[in-house]
Each structure stands twice: as structure tokens, then as C-alpha cells.
Design a protein around this nucleic acid. Sequence first.
RNA 1: GGGCGCGUCGCAUAGCUGGAUAUUGCACCGGCCUCCUAAGCCGGAUGUCGUGGGUUCGAAUCCUGCCGCGCCCGCCA
Length: 572
Amino acid sequence: MQAMIDAVLPSMEKAVQDVGIQGDFWRNMLSRSKEASQGDLALPCFPFAKQLGCSPNEVAQKIADALELEIGEAIAVGPYVNIRASITWLANQIHQVPESKGSILIEHTSANPNGPFHVGRARNAVLGDTFVRMHRAAGYDVTAEYYVDDMGKQVGILCWALENLDEGRVHALLEEGGISSETSPHSGKQDHARVLWYQAANLLKAKDASVDAGVTELVQLSEEADEDILDRFESAYQPVLDGMLDTLGRMGIRFDSFTKESRFIVDGSVETLMGQLQSSELHGVAENGAHYLELESKGVKGKSTQFFYRRGDGSSLYATRDLAYHEYKWTQSDRLLNILGEDHKLQSKQVGIALEELNIQPPEVVFYAFTKLADGKMSTRRGNVVYMDDLLDEARSRALETVRESKPDLSEEKLLQIAEAVGISATRFNIARISPEKGITFRWSDALSLEADSAPFIMYSYARACSIQRKAGEVDAGFVLNPELLDGTAADLIRRLAYMNDELQTAIDSRSPHMFCAWLSALAVDYNRFYRDNYVIDDNGVNTQNLYISELAREHLRRGCEAVGIIPIEEM
RNA sequence: GGGCGCGUCGCAUAGCUGGAUAUUGCACCGGCCUCCUAAGCCGGAUGUCGUGGGUUCGAAUCCUGCCGCGCCCGCCA
């Protein structure tokens, strides 16, 4: 952990010099021990051996002997110097509150409002919201932002369908196309209702050219920011978007601001940027008058290295509006983070280069690999999807079985509440705990797993701590932990707690939410072991020190859960 | 064809700015509820880290050839 390294470095500097080592290349080698049993920090001594002309083991012993540490002790183990922080020092770390770290705008999800939220899109939302939550927990001022695609082809098709198809036609088309239109428990939601129109229009488009013509006309007008068309588009997509946001809200995912794509056409900023790009050295014009930037010199490779930002007819493209969007976003925050699917990698690179040409700083980006179904890619258009609403229902009913079994006395309402929290948390955690660049194949059994290394496991530890607190009462405000008395699993727990802020920051900096998920799981394990070995309530009544530690763990479990979107419930 | 990413026990997964016996869970085998929540705890078995080379005192980690999978290479979004 960084605070520990900072604390050790001066002493290490001195010890290393005393032993006669030249240079400071070793600074980067001082790092986290891989296993807790080896201590907190380790310095491998192999490279020193040559310089000093003795064995790594001897060097390690010399350095360990020369080290004078305030935070703990150093022991040479073979060719390593292992440093173990004292529980006293670690316990002090626990109370360090993260300082304020400035503002960040995190844009995520931003799915086309053309149908219900499905589990492929969910990875963006879960990842994005986890970043939002982790940043908040670490002291950042976060804006969660949704970019609304309120113009262009997808919305155009939806709008055209709603204005030109009736219910009978829609069902006939879907049946013919082999897409199910049977009513689900969610068919009352407008996202579920209207997606049928969208799917039907896509089917019809394949065999009736007049559909394309109709849609194209709408899309063209929308790109000219035609007020009437934008209004019609909005009445088509807004109920769908609302339905999607309901689903997201159910998952605990909420946004602070929504920005419409059309805004940048309306306010003229897209036009201005297109003008500015003309003076770029990369600028070029195609035969039909379309404008582009030639990106070959910027390291872009492939069939086409040209980034088109203006069509032959003078209109802008999605990516062009994205440039204006980023310019706008920088007026809102100190830092920008985008959560994007890996299919956007090239586009994102192109936009980044174009932004640099405009002297606008590119955003930071997290890419994640796709979620696919066992039988192929998910597609709203083709109806090959698992909807999030259905997944969450299924997760809840699975959880309900388990809760009913273990808590038969609870009321039906309470059972449902717990099951809902467990289902949502498990679903989210199963996504957040996997490193983003790894592809996921959706399987019901995985998605609904309530086993260990899962959200319910962590929730259970928290509920256990809550139960103990209810029985044992509050700790006196003036109570001070006596770390000298701690050992075994109690000391392990304190050590784990002390690492929280560091783990959180590391996960943020390396854009790896799964790392913080792993820490949280480990905390739950440590708490369960502490629980086994250290009774808060025994024959003599309440052990205040153990209650105090249990309460520390409870508080950290709660904060950790909130940082990854697990719902901490007090009973389960 | 080119670019980017991934490939770790039967399944899933961590580690990848090189370092000590490769992490964790599921499944499998065995043990623990007269005691604060057993959705828990303890123990066991399971691995050519895709594959061939290379660099290094040391490679899952770096370089490189090959194989497999995914994504991308639109004046679409």
C-alpha cells in the first residue's frame, strides 16, 4: 500500500546506503507481498548480490539488520526482506478519511433508446455505475452522465414504425420473422411494448424499400435539427428511455445529467468544430465534398485510415457530434471518463486524435469485452436477447427460494425485499467482479449464482455483523482500540480494513473494479473468521474490544458494498 | 489481409510495470450447529499458466513465430 511504502522509504533509503548499495533502482522493487503470511511489503534482493559480491540471502539479512522501522518490523527470509507493519500502525490507518479529489464526469450506458435494457448492455451500466460509486467512495465529486441518442437511424426507425405500423401489422411481421411477441410480465412497460415496433420495422425494411426511404427522410431532417422531427422522435423514444431508466433504477443505477445529441446541432457547436477542423494539417476532402482527417501519420492502421466528420452533403456524423459533446463535457468537470464497449476502440481513438487537433483533451476510456449468449451475439433488432427485467425477476425468485428456506418466519413482504436485494446485488457483482477486458458468455447459472465469492456471501457477513450489533448494542464513543491485544484472525481483519482506501484507489487508478470486488470478498472472509474466533457476546456479556472491531468491519462492509453496488441489508 | 484484445485445474476466475510454494469460487472428498445468522467455518484432491522459440540469476508476467476465440477496419450509430 502506498501509505506504507511512503512510511518505509526513508528508513529503507538509509539501510540500503549503509549496506553499500548504489543507485535507487530498488525503489520500484519494494512492493506488496503476495501473501499476508509474508508480511505487508517485500524487497527481493537478487539484483544487489552482484553489486555487493555476496549472496542475495546475505544481502537480505544485512538490509533487515540495518533497517530501523517505526511502523513495524523487518525480517530476512531467504533472499527477501519482508516488512510487517504493526497492528498499531495499521489500526491508525483505518481512520484515515479520503481527502477530496476533485471532480470527474463519468459517462456510461448511453444506450440507444430503442428497446428494453438487455444483459449485453448491462455490462456497461454495471461497470459505469461501479466506477461512479467507487469514485464517490474515494472522495471524488462525480457526475454520472447519460448521452441520449435522440437523433439518427435507431430512433428514426422507432419513430417511423410507431407512426406507420399498427398493432396487427407488427404482430404479423414478427410472427413471419420468427421473433416472439408474446406478452411478458413486463409488457406494460413502454420499452417492452415499443421494441416490437422497432423489430417489426427492421424486418419490413429488409423487403420493402419504402421503409428505408421513409426512415432516411426522417433521419436527414433530424440531422438538420428540424424541430418538428426532433419532437416526434422524442415522443417515440422518451417512453422507451423511461422504461430503460426504470430498469437501471431497480439496479441502483441513477444519473445526474442527460445530454441530448441534437443539442450540439441546435447550438451550432458542431458546425463551428467542422470549420476548425479544416485548418488541421490532417484535413482532406473527398471527391464528393466529404471532409475527413487522414490519420495514418497518427498510427491508425487498416483498410481506411480516414476519419470522416462531414458528409458530402455537408451534414455531420455521429462522431462529429461526439467531438462537440466532449468539448461540452470539459465545461462540466476536471476529468472525463467514458465507459465503452470494445467495438468502440477505433472510433474512440479517432475521436481522441480529432480532439487533439482541436486542442481539446481526450477523455479517459475504459473498454470492456462483449457479453454474448451461448448461441451467439445479442441483438435487440433480431430479438436474440435476454432482457434485464426478466433476469432480475429470475434472480429474485431464485433468491426467494433460498431465503424462504433459511428464514421461514419472516413475512412474505420481508422475504421479497431480501430476495430482490440479493438478486440485484448478485447480478451486479457477477459482472463487476470480472476484469473488463475478458469476454463473458451469458449463462443463467452463472448470472444467478448465489454461491460464495458472490454478493450474497458478502451481504451475509454484513447481516451477521448487524445482528451482532443489535444484540450487543453500541460501543462507547470514547472507546479506544488496544492493538497490543490483537492477534490471529482479529489482527488479520484489522490489516484488511487498513487496506481499504488503498485498494479502492488502486482499483480506480488501474480501472479495475474487479480488484476492489476481490478485496471486499476477502474482507467478508476475514470477518467470518474473526467471528469464529472472537466472541462479541459470551458468558461474561459483551466484549467491548471485539464489538468495536465487529463494528469497524460492519462499517467497512457497508461502505464497500455501496462502492460496488451491493445492497447492504441488515437481515437475510 | 491489417489493427486491438483474450487464451491460467472439469467449469469460472485472480495475478501480467518479471521475483519466494500460481489466487479464489463452483463441482468433488472428509470434518464442524446444546454457543453472537451453517447463504458460514476447517481440511483434502485437482494445473504441460494455448503452443514453439528467445531475453534473464529468475518468465503466467517481457520479445517473437504459430494456433484458437472475440471485436474493429462505413460519407452507420
